[in-house]
Design a protein around this nucleic acid. Structure first.
Lengths: 160, 160
DNA sequence: GGTGAAACGTAGGCCGT
DNA sequence: ACGGCCTACGTTTCACC
């Protein structure tokens, strides 16, 4: 490649009001524009224009409802370190494709260290996790090493 | 303890429509009730009643805007395994208290395995992370072992 | 669970700064 | 380029069936 693939603007210019808007929308993604405008000290129309601009610029990627894992049938969470046996682009792509299709995989991070990937797995229970472990991870030819860390609790969790 | 501390209803009874509602709201937390009702095949009022019930039951814990880390000044993410030198309740509570006050710590999970905790750290850059590593983690008397895994990319990330 | 109507919020044109 | 005002339009919300 001749230039760096994508030199994107890493931090959009955000003033104090923008930051307050983002803070409020992180806290309550369904706040009405009227209430939001009030909280940040702007008129509704000015506020709405800023929110629209933040969405358009990709600063706000979307809005999501935060669900209770226990109450939606997720009783088992684990982080899993996965090492591949080949460090080729093909092996990585094949593995990532498999992860993207597995519903138990909520996150797949490419990390530094002795293994390549860190996964967050959410399943109904230990049996469902075992199924994923053996039937999915265990059958992928690229996978070399699997280490599971079962989540016993999360004293802090500010996941978006 | 004489009985299990809290036997809560682990999975609220959710029918197919409830699951569809949750799925839609996870995808787009700002969908209008009208559009949501349409998608799940209910009248707006019936749909709204279900959403309100799901919120009240705690199945829906809230709504949040999903922000772009790069565009909000977060250029560095890492997972950190932390081992304590004492397995006492006091040591854990002190550590968890410290984590809850550290803004760089977005998640703190209590895990099984050779160490006690897995943290997700978000910072502006490597320098900011180094500061956290030495000035915060490094000064806690309970902390015994620290292993950092820097996130190079996240091919999949469905963090609520 | 559906209907309807009043209350409320949104979105866009327009003007002032 | 950005904020405030106004208003037609859409959405939410509630009592009632």
């Amino acid at each position: 490649m001749r230039f760096m693939p994508e030199i994107v603007q890493l931090m959009t210019d955000l003033d104090g009001i923008d930051e307050k808007i983002l803070q409020e929308l992180s806290r309550d993604g369904r706040i009405s524009n009227l209430a939001l405008a009030d909280r940040v000290g702007l008129s509704p129309s000015a506020c709405l224009r800023r929110v629209a601009a933040l969405e358009k610029a990709g600063v706000i990627k979307g809005y999501r409802a935060v669900l209770s894992p226990e109450k939606t049938g997720v009783g088992f969470t684990a982080y899993v370190m996965v090492g591949l046996n080949a460090h080729t682009k093909q092996a990585q792509e094949a593995f990532e494709r498999a992860m993207s299709h597995a519903p138990e995989v909520r996150e797949c991070h490419n990390i530094t260290g002795n293994v390549e990937y860190l996964l967050r797995i959410e399943a109904a229970d230990l049996a469902a996790y075992k199924h994923f472990h053996t039937e999915v991870l265990g059958t992928l030819p690229q996978v070399n090493a699997i280490t599971s860390y079962v989540v016993m609790g999360s004293p802090k969790d500010e996941r978006a």
